[in-house]
Amino acid sequence: MTINTTALPDIIFMLLFFFMVSTTIQNDKASMVDLPVAKNAETKLKKEYNDLNIYLSLSGQKTRVSINGNTRDFTDMAELLKLEVNRLKSNNHSADKAILYISEEIEMSYVNAVKKALQSLTIYQVSYIHNGLNVL
């Protein structure tokens, strides 16, 4: 004699729904704490980058460039790159390396323009980040 388990998933789902509907999340009781004031701390609103992270992507028909989180039209690429290099150098970063994240459909004229802009700022070390090829 076997037990009929046809209704078992129904019962489990019923129980799941019951607990999901009837459960209330326990509220933690807040304790008021006076934190000490940091006198020498710097406020960091944005993620701090040590290298140049350059993204090229297509937005509709237009190519957009993003350098360390600042996104512009590609026409402003050289200016944006210069600004970011100066900012990194003023924060005591070497800014001697660029990491390129480029969409596959981007044309090489844009990639070559980025490389020329890097060369003009004496940044020669580049790393291409890409997906799925058999790099040894």
Binding site: V126, S127, Y128, I129, H130, G132, V135
Partner: peptide, 8 residues
């Protein structure tokens, strides 16, 4: 993701 390093 893979990485290709090159020197310009």
């Amino acid at each position: 993701t893979y990485r290709l390093d090159m020197r310009l």
